[in-house]
Amino acid sequence: MAVSAIAKKPTTPQTPPPTTKHTTKPTIEPFEPLKKKPLPTGQPREWYESHNRKLKAMRLAIALLDTGVYRTEQAPNSTIRTTAARIGIHPPSNTTCRLVRSLIRDGR
């Protein structure tokens, strides 16, 4: 038999199948900061002071929890005030420190 009788198929370079563009991570849009709404008017001054105190205590409690302070015994006034200085807010009063500890205690 002749070699020409057993003809080899010509080899062509294999092209990969067309792929669609897939990303492994979904694109996440950055959060837009929430628009601040003005506080309601006509409230007594004590209401505004209490409201702002609660907001400050919440920010401090979150910062303390992020640093590993999970029990009220770990959060004396000095630690709370040091955390306030670290996150850039005014030192809290004794009342605000008590409120921070109550938020940590209730968050179990």
Rank of each mutant, 00 (worst) to 15 (best):
V3S: 15
R71K: 12
C97V: 06
F31T: 11
I89N: 08
M1N: 07
V3E: 15
E46F: 04
R105H: 13
I80G: 00
T83I: 05
L99N: 00
R86I: 11
E73G: 03
P18L: 08
T19N: 12
P76C: 03
L60I: 02
Q74L: 02
R53H: 09
L103E: 03
Q14M: 07
T95N: 15
P91C: 11
W47F: 12
T15L: 14
K36M: 11
K37D: 11
P44E: 10
L34T: 14
R108D: 14
S93F: 09
R53W: 02
N52I: 13
P40G: 04
H51E: 10
K21C: 08
R105D: 11
I6E: 12
T83A: 10
E29Q: 12
G107H: 12
P30S: 06
L34P: 09
T24P: 02
H51G: 02
A75T: 00
M1R: 06
T79K: 05
K37Q: 14
R71L: 11
T23G: 09
D66N: 11
M58G: 13
R86Q: 15
T23K: 07
L60F: 01
R53P: 01
P92N: 04
K21R: 10
E73Q: 07
L64K: 00
V100N: 00
A63D: 01
M1Q: 04
R101S: 03
P44K: 12
L55W: 07
A7R: 12
H90N: 15
A75L: 02
T83Q: 03
D66A: 05
T23C: 05
R45T: 14
H51F: 09
A75S: 03
A84R: 00
L39P: 03
V69R: 01
K21P: 07
R86E: 15
G88L: 03
R108E: 15
P16C: 05
H22Y: 10
G88T: 07
A2N: 09
T82E: 14
K54L: 07
T79H: 03
P40L: 05
K54H: 11
Y48I: 02
P26K: 06
L55H: 08
R98N: 15
Q14Y: 08
T24M: 08
E46R: 05
G42T: 04
L34A: 15
K8P: 04
L39Q: 10
S50W: 02
T23Y: 13
T12L: 07
A57D: 00
V69M: 02
K35T: 15
I80F: 00
K9R: 11
A5L: 11
K9S: 09
Y70Q: 05
P92G: 03
D106G: 03
K25M: 07
T79Q: 08
G107W: 04
P30Q: 08
P18S: 12
T41L: 13
P38T: 12
